[in-house]
Design a protein around this nucleic acid. Structure first.
Lengths: 162, 162
DNA sequence: CTTCTGTATGTTATAGCATAACAGGTCAAG
DNA sequence: CTTGACCTGTTATGCTATAACATACAGAAG
């Protein structure tokens, strides 16, 4: 599981990884008795194809161009569904959404956002999460959900300074 | 420095802690050759008085009621200044802003947001930050800024379940 | 096969958050 | 007293998100 962030930054076959994730998503949705409807599926595909975080309206524009509804609630509902069931994540810092790269796996994701190329990678946040629980516990605070996002430079952009 | 989160949740004299922080802020601003103008100072005071996260328009409404400009850029510029210089923090999850409770101190803040009473406390995030740097480093990512926010229950709200 | 029911989608309207661009004022340095 | 830097004010607009209601559709019950 440690190689996800690395592979997200490395050159790779997007069509292939998207296909894998989509297959996992379908299996997971069926297993839970949920429905990956055309709109939801297409939104997930759009996020997977983009392979970076997209704003809700970016997704909406693509949906509309394909004959789906072109009003905000259409895309927000689909995004809410995906986020709710762990198939996508919301990137608070960007007011944007990104496909989850390993759905079904329990994870406390950490997002690494490159300020140059805008790629968003998902890293294993288990150690960060436990440090957070400890720090919060010292204040008597019970953590239920957490958001951890880092802004910086990805390996490629570090290697090629602007 | 470990007691900040605790004191933020505990009952205390807001006027007193606000005054302290404001004095620290003034000293810090002078030391750096910056200007804590009336609008900026008033915005900071408003955040300190509220003692929780406020939306930009909440702050703007109070400003406007006191004769300052009543257009969004007025408050956003003041908030940007405060955030830029560490006198306030942006809470991404809430699209809101909170005064920094110990300006001048280098810190990687972690925010603890109570989902019931909406109080926001700032905890020491040093351990969380270093875990984050390690996790990101494994992916070759260089962290420059990070956002760590936890949603959950504060001590008071845990004690008195709804 | 039809009706019922829950869920999903479509649509209208509006609310909330944020910034670009330009105009005018203040103040200290030269 | 002019210049230049910075701050404030204002207009206008754009982006993000949701409430509320109407329609459609699939599967279960009869």
């Amino acid at each position: 599981m440690h190689e996800h962030a690395i592979s997200a930054f490395a050159a790779h076959d997007h069509a292939h990884c998207s296909g894998d994730v989509l297959a996992q998503a379908e299996a997971m949705v069926v297993a839970e008795g949920l429905r990956l409807t055309p709109v939801r599926r297409r939104v997930l595909e759009i996020l997977l194809e983009a392979h970076r975080a997209l704003g809700a309206y970016d997704v909406l524009n693509r949906l509309a161009a394909e004959g789906f509804g072109n009003q905000p609630p259409v895309v927000y509902r689909a995004l809410d569904f995906l986020v709710e069931h762990g198939l996508a994540h919301r990137i608070q810092r960007l007011n944007a959404f990104a496909a989850c790269m390993h759905p079904g796996t329990a994870h406390a994701p950490v997002f690494l956002i490159c300020r140059t190329c805008h790629v968003v990678a998902e890293a294993d946040g288990a150690s960060v999460g436990s440090a957070l629980v400890v720090a919060a516990g010292a204040a008597g605070f019970a953590v239920e959900r957490s958001t951890v996002e880092a802004l910086g430079l990805c390996p490629q952009c570090r290697a090629v300074p602007a």
